[in-house]
Design a protein around this nucleic acid. Structure first.
Length: 268
DNA sequence: ATGGTAGGATGCCTA
């Protein structure tokens, strides 16, 4: 079985790319982030025509997460329990469309779009950190309750956990940028402490291996990227992993998302 | 030279 995660940065703008990728990737499950649409604009037939069931959670033109599967799609859950709310200037707080879970082929899959902190002193940063801590607390509880449970927390984490996960850590430090700060990295490590493993890195080691390249500044041709998309697997799922690939080819050419798909292969 | 790109309810906000 092959499971994958991909921040597509607008499903409607990327429909042809996503369909072609589904047809050539041979993936059984795809966790999608940044669909950037509501259900009424979701391209349901794209998935149905290619043999996938799909569940979507989108509230507006922002965020939006989905799971497509050809090995079953059961017990769909929109938002994780107690998912923190966010409201600009404290107004109209809402649980944003950043998490959807479903059971696919015996694996509890979560498609996650972790909030972008924007800046170290921005109000989005404490939101990001509490969002992660709340998710971690529940994820820890799921494994404690059933040590054999197979869970994949996958998506765009908006964190570069190690210095090698950005092209120039000194640039990030000098500019005071997000994604590499100690609180963000501690939030990521907390998932590891709870038993979840980054199952891609051992099969796609750095340095210089990334999942995201900014559209600006010629970041992709200059190989200046970031590793911020992860598949964090519970212990029982980790032991099934036989390989992993970051599909850097998909970042090439006109009309690419700024993120590459990340694929994990599981033993039967 | 303080730029560049790409998406969205586009002439501004988000990444």
């Amino acid at each position: 079985m092959k499971i994958a995660t991909w921040n597509v940065n607008s499903l409607r703008a990327r429909a042809d790319r996503v369909e072609a990728w589904l047809q050539r990737s041979d993936c059984d499950v795809l966790a999608i982030q940044e669909t950037k649409c509501k259900d009424e604009n979701f391209p349901w037939e794209l998935f149905e025509n290619n043999g996938y069931e799909v569940a979507h959670f989108g509230l507006s033109q922002w965020n939006g997460v989905a799971i497509a599967s050809r090995v079953g799609l059961d017990d769909v859950e929109r938002t994780f329990p107690d998912q923190p709310v966010f409201g600009k200037n404290g107004k109209d707080p809402v649980q944003e469309a950043r998490a959807i879970g479903a059971t696919c082929g015996g694996v509890r899959v979560w498609s996650l779009y972790v909030p972008n902190g924007r800046a170290l002193n921005d109000e989005h940063m404490p939101y990001k950190l509490s969002w992660l801590e709340t998710l971690k607390n529940h994820a820890q509880g799921w494994v404690t309750a059933d040590p054999e449970t197979q869970i994949a927390l996958m998506g765009d984490w908006n964190i570069a956990p190690q210095d090698e996960d950005v092209w120039d850590i000194e640039y990030f430090r000098t500019e005071g940028l997000t994604h590499v700060s100690e609180p963000e990295r501690a939030a990521f490590r907390a998932f590891e402490d709870a038993g979840y493993q980054d199952v891609v890195r051992p099969h796609a080691p750095g340095p210089g291996v990334y999942t995201y390249w900014d559209y600006t500044q010629l970041r992709f041709p200059k190989k200046e990227g970031m590793r911020i998309d992860f598949v964090m697997a519970s212990p029982a799922l980790s032991s099934r992993v036989t390989g992993a690939v970051i599909d850097r080819e998909e970042r090439k050419g006109k009309g690419a998302s700024d993120h590459a798909p990340v694929i994990v292969e599981l033993a039967d």
